[in-house]
Design a protein around this nucleic acid. Structure first.
Lengths: 174, 174
DNA sequence: ATATCCATGTAACGTGTTACATGATTGT
DNA sequence: ACAATCATGTAACACGTTACATGGATAT
């Protein structure tokens, strides 16, 4: 149940339309909880029906923009959810399954794929580092909110570094 | 499309029944691609219908055991899939969404949850390390298959260590 | 025999993905 | 006016989760 709450979070940061939300997901919250515009419209519909968000102005024809605001009930729900205990979910990574498959098949070499993944993870790491330098330059003072946003980014950086190290180690050993 | 291939991999390691597969997923491949017994039975049905696996003996009454073997077509499909290029999927972690929510709400302290997650990740890391010591003791010679299985385990260890470091850092800074 | 557990399933629903459709807006 | 693009959706399906049901095996 994270997507509706990710949407509430993003709308609380700044009310906007569905398409604008989808764009924001492509380069911010979506790094840690990706969503397509179809998912977003579906959830916006449910959130509106539940009274957690509301569209500004009246419902107009299909295709015209609809601006959404978070209602008090939506904010309360987001508080409730973010405080509720929830365990981490296991990783679920296809490349690791493929390595196990290669181990049992014995006829498959995944070196190329590992190199390709290393490349992709390096690119993602670069993107995260650029965001860090732009939004949290060294020496800048951080309030609580910025500190939390930075912590999220640092988690992403740590994962990508972890992947990179693993790719290098695996290529060197195997 | 990883679950059917994870099942093929596991059945290729050792043919067995659905329940045995579910048990194996709980403590091996399932660390990296979890699945419930309902998912597994559903996929077994599809794989059987597609002719990629076959049940030993005749179909008997409901409730009786059914032993599955991988067919040649199943092995071919697993080779094809494991060699096909597939990009890594983004992380999708609820705790990071909750941190962003806490940043915008300003009234939520997630310190307790982060400590709890640190605890859980520490336990998982312990479990992985125990498996490493049991299956790949220092000094043991590794053939290609063992090397690949060990690489998968090392990925899990690296992620858990990464999480642990992040939790510690976040608790110290925030 | 009957209570208990185990293996195999069904049902319902929520979430994620892909392909496509329709009305509005913009540029020329 | 027309084409291209954008915003908003619909439809269909695959995957994941939870709750429950039924037949077989086991123990007392």
């Amino acid at each position: 149940m994270s997507l509706p709450h990710a949407i509430l979070t993003s709308l609380l940061e700044k009310p906007c339309t569905g398409a604008e939300l989808a764009r924001r997901f492509d380069k911010s919250l979506g790094y840690f909880w990706p969503a397509t515009h179809q998912q977003i419209y579906r959830e916006l519909g449910k959130l509106e029906e539940a009274g957690l968000i509301a569209a500004r102005g009246l419902a107009t024809a299909r295709g015209s923009q609809r601006h959404f605001d978070v209602q008090a009930a939506g904010r309360a729900e987001l508080e409730r959810w973010s405080l509720a205990a929830a365990d981490p979910r296991p990783v679920r990574d296809a490349l690791l399954v493929r390595l196990r498959a290669a181990a049992v098949l014995g006829t498959v070499d995944l070196g190329g794929e590992i190199r390709r993944h290393r490349q992709l993870h390096a690119q993602t790491l670069e993107r995260y580092r650029a965001i860090e330098e732009r939004d949290f330059p060294p020496g800048s003072a951080l309030d609580t909110a910025s500190g939390l946003r930075r912590a999220v980014l640092l988690a992403g950086i740590a994962f990508e570094e972890s992947w990179l190290a693993w790719c290098a180690e695996t290529l060197a050993t195997g």
